[in-house]
């Protein structure tokens, strides 16, 4: 009897379909009907038309083949990229763009990590920022204006709220503006944890490696690879302020080694106060990326620039 199925193609097809549908229903259809698959964080804002156009560019350029957008709840991953991803962060993502390969770093928390100017410079020429990067150049996106009509159709298709002013604001924008706007909104629905305070580490606030020639050499290497893109090859400034003048966070006058250490380790956000000086924001934190030795080495290197 059971052998008959191998003589009845239609029956065989029906039974196969049923067998295939069991797992499908259990792991896909049923969950879809439950709220756990449709969570939304309270802080999550819908994409603006410009951000959505940026997201479209991300999809068409296949950025997701090199970048992921989900931070796993693993210790080192949280240190590298920030708070791990929550299910409720993706409610407006049609489709999700978590990716499957990290040829480049995760972008789930890229929003607010760098100032806009950094992104424009980086898209234009990633290799100028990181000589060994294999990311393609995307400056050419400037030549492609945003089409307000299509953008409006897109937000409408997804049922996202928008105003006429949002659409009017698209005039004169290009696709590079759009992708930068999209970068800046990624992951900001979850509050950034403040970087670990470095108060204890600093001790007497004197650099133990001050003037140490090999530390300065090591500091220069780290600086060239990580900081030069923003502060200039010789520290004369660019996206970030000059490190060779005697102005620190917009106030003339010398600061302690501990001040420099703190800025590098904790980074800055607008309004943050360090030794009575007020930051405007834009300096990324490096405490999870570099150990104390490395940060003191860079501090020593920065001091050496000033003494020149």
């Amino acid at each position: 009897m059971s052998g008959d199925i191998y003589k009845k193609p239609i029956l065989f097809a029906v039974v196969s379909a049923v067998v295939i549908l069991i797992g499908t229903i259990a792991t896909m259809f049923i969950p879809m009907l439950t709220p756990q698959m449709h969570p939304k964080l309270e802080n999550l804002k819908p994409y603006t038309p410009l951000q959505l156009v940026g997201r479209d560019v991300y999809m068409s350029e296949g950025c997701h083949y090199c970048h992921t957008q989900t931070v796993r709840p693993l210790k080192t991953e949280v240190m590298r990229y920030g708070e791990y991803s929550k299910a409720g962060e993706f409610a407006y993502d049609h489709p999700f763009l978590w990716g499957s390969k990290r040829t480049g770093p995760d972008l789930a928390r890229i929003g607010g990590k760098y100032p806009d100017a950094w992104h424009y410079g980086h898209f234009e020429d990633p290799q100028r920022f990181f000589a060994e990067s294999n990311m393609p150049k995307y400056g050419w996106l400037k030549g492609y204006p945003v089409d307000p009509v299509e953008a409006e159709a897109s937000v409408k298709a997804l049922g996202l709220p928008y105003t006429k002013a949002d659409i009017d604001a698209l005039k004169g924008k290009n696709k590079l503006d759009a992708i930068v706007a999209y970068m800046q909104v990624l992951g900001i629905a979850v509050a950034k944890k403040p970087a670990a305070s470095s108060a204890q580490i600093m001790g007497d606030k004197k650099n133990p490696l001050s003037g140490n020639a090999s530390a300065i050499a090591a500091g220069k290497k780290l600086y060239d690879a990580n900081c030069a893109a923003c502060h200039g090859a010789e520290g004369k400034g660019g996206i970030g302020p000059s490190l060779v003048d005697n102005v620190w966070l917009y106030k003339e006058g010398d600061v302690s080694d501990g001040f420099i250490y703190t800025v590098i380790a904790e980074g800055t956000t607008a309004g943050k106060e360090i030794e009575g000086r007020t930051a405007k924001g834009g300096m990324p934190p490096y405490s999870s990326m570099f150990d104390q030795d490395k940060i003191w080495s860079m501090t020593a290197y920065i001091r050496s620039l000033q003494n020149k």
């Binding site: 896909m28 449709h38 479209d56 993502d93 489709p95 999700f96 978590w98 897109s154």
Partner: peptide, 24 residues
């Protein structure tokens, strides 16, 4: 998917659910 133009559409599913359908 939700079509926008002839050459562009959005996945009908969103977020975690979209991920689950896609990898199924």
């Amino acid at each position: 998917s939700i079509p926008v133009t002839l050459t562009k559409s959005y996945h009908l599913f969103a977020g975690v659910n979209s991920a689950n359908v896609q990898w199924w």
